[in-house]
Design a protein around this nucleic acid. Structure first.
Lengths: 142, 142
DNA sequence: TTGCTATTCTCCAGTGACTATAGATTAGGG
DNA sequence: CCCTAATCTATAGTCACTGGAGAATAGCAA
């Protein structure tokens, strides 16, 4: 039954820095929390999870707009199936594309570390790995 | 035996916009190409691959510094095994962390699309999926 | 050759997502 | 009560682009 905690603790718990939390509130990613009598923000566990989610999603390279749509799935569970489905499917395609790129890069980095273990660096082919010509110029994320 | 192509064609081939190519040159991610008599940049296939690589890596959320170290593997194949190995291993850890996060998100999005197919949205748990408390506060990428 | 549009050039200002600083106020411990 | 740490608002700076202004050049058609 805690009455909530201040922004500093929210920051250290969520891994999102204090000014960034205020920034997220400003741009509407995080709802404005209640304040104390002396005007200080009071956070609870829900905003903590939301913050950590935003942090991870940003680290994965999603831009704020993508995160907004992801959070809208969470926030409006009553919205039309069609809308939620469209959002989920789009993000799913994007996520899968990212995974396959990362796995290709993973294999190449493994190969290099492996070669190193045997005493020689060999040519690095990271460029060839990711520089394949598959142009889907429709943006995939940011 | 083409004498190279101008920046516009390099842009459309690589998927990197013209001003962004000039920017990459400015910050030293892309070597300054030769110029024509009238001072226009002339690119070849190698720069093209490098550009596409940079584009993909940025889309995957690597920052310019990370890309710089990745490219350094490519650029100095003669460098010490220890150095190359360290870079490759670090990036590998990072890449794997990203992959596992993305796979968790993939599963949740699949579940949602799946639920939708059966007529109900259900609660969205994207937040719980990524908002786990595993704090490795050492930055992983950017 | 002349005319015309497209492309390139450099430089500089603007955007998105933070990140840091300044100055004032408040909280909480000794 | 005092003092340091945390918080507040507001503003400015950073990173990685992105777009615009204005001038020069390319390339093609008449």
């Amino acid at each position: 039954m805690s009455a909530g905690f201040p922004i500093g603790r929210a920051a250290e718990q969520s891994g999102v820095k204090v000014p960034t939390i205020r920034y997220y509130e400003e741009i509407g990613l995080l709802p404005a929390p209640p304040r104390t009598g002396s005007n200080r923000r009071l956070y609870g566990d829900d905003e903590l999870k939301r913050l950590a989610f935003i942090r991870h999603a940003r680290e994965l390279g999603f831009d704020v707009d993508a995160i907004r749509t992801l959070l809208s799935l969470q926030d409006n569970p009553q919205q039309s199936c069609a809308a939620a489905d469209a959002i989920a499917r789009d993000r799913l395609l994007e996520v899968r594309a990212r995974i396959s790129r990362l796995r290709a890069l993973e294999r190449e980095l493994e190969r290099m570390a492996d070669n190193c273990a045997h005493g020689h660096v060999g040519e690095c082919r990271v460029i060839e790995i990711l520089a394949d010509g598959t142009h889907e110029h429709g943006r995939l994320g940011d």
